[in-house]
Write a protein that binds this DNA or RNA. Structure first.
Length: 240
DNA sequence: AATGGCCCCAACCGCCGTTTC
DNA sequence: AGAAACGGCGGTTGGGGCCAT
């Protein structure tokens, strides 16, 4: 009698040797085609299960240890804006997974939120909010610096534009809702939204016409950035 | 020491959008 | 163009560990 393939698949907690094998094959084949990877590796696991194990546990870029107070506040703030968009929130917390954040919210923050005065925690007029804004700014600068070095200016601009417009336009829509409940909008979001509305579809376009290697003109809607040596300065201009 | 209740989190499930053939 | 495969996401579950009694 033929058995269904699924019957042969293992479920439940992963063994150490399974982890080792998975790490080996992900290193070899990359983080994609999980079904093929599962087959080729000989692991009696579904591709989905392999992906999940890697993404949520084995990936070396994951951050271990408890959530910091700063991370906690970011989760509070972003959850207020986006709701249960765990993957979106996770993107703003390097090294943390959507699953981690989801679990953390359910076990820690939800109770806290119910117990405490929520508005006080996410009020960006407080010092903590300003501190976090600076942290976020630093993260953005590091990102643009690395990307520019690795992929060049054009690719970085394209990616930056997409990255921020997608998540923050979405944020823009939710803010109207949250404001009704007295939730403060962060200076960061205000600035991004303002920036997007001014720039619309023209962000970073037209820089080639009169640019040189070290001197490029960048059109952001009605604004022009001149003599910009490094892309990070464009990013900086958002915050200053 | 035994046990029951609670908490935490890894893993699973089902759905849906995207990509590939 | 359409079907199948794949990947991502949010919700849920179950088992292990901790703690109070």
């Amino acid at each position: 009698m033929d058995c269904k393939k699924e019957d042969a698949l293992r479920r439940g907690p992963w063994l150490e040797e399974e982890d080792e094998r998975l790490v080996k094959f992900v290193t070899l084949l990359g983080e994609r085609r999980w079904d093929s990877l599962a087959r080729v590796s000989g692991l009696k696991r579904s591709g989905k299960s392999c992906r999940l194990r890697w993404m949520n546990y084995l990936n070396p870029s994951l951050k271990c240890g408890p959530m910091s107070q700063e991370e906690e506040i970011i989760i509070f703030q972003l959850h207020a804006l986006w709701g249960n968009k765990w993957s979106n929130i996770a993107r703003r917390l390097p090294g943390r997974t959507d699953n981690q954040i989801k679990n953390y919210w359910r076990t820690h923050l939800r109770k806290k939120m119910e117990a405490q005065n929520y508005d006080k925690i996410i009020d960006w007029r407080g010092n903590k909010g300003e501190e976090l804004l600076h942290k976020h700014k630093e993260t953005e600068i590091m990102w643009t610096r690395t990307k520019t070095r690795e992929h060049g200016f054009d690719e970085t601009v394209k990616e930056y534009k997409q990255k921020n417009m997608e998540s923050d336009k979405e944020t823009n829509g939710v803010i109207c809702e949250t404001e009704r409940f007295g939730v403060m909008n962060s200076p960061y979001e205000n600035r991004i939204i303002d920036w997007i509305s001014k720039s619309d579809a023209n962000i970073f376009e037209d820089h080639s016409s009169s640019s040189t290697d070290n001197n490029i003109n960048i059109n952001v809607g009605s604004w022009w950035f001149q003599e910009i040596m490094d892309f990070e300065e464009v990013s900086c201009s958002l915050w200053s």
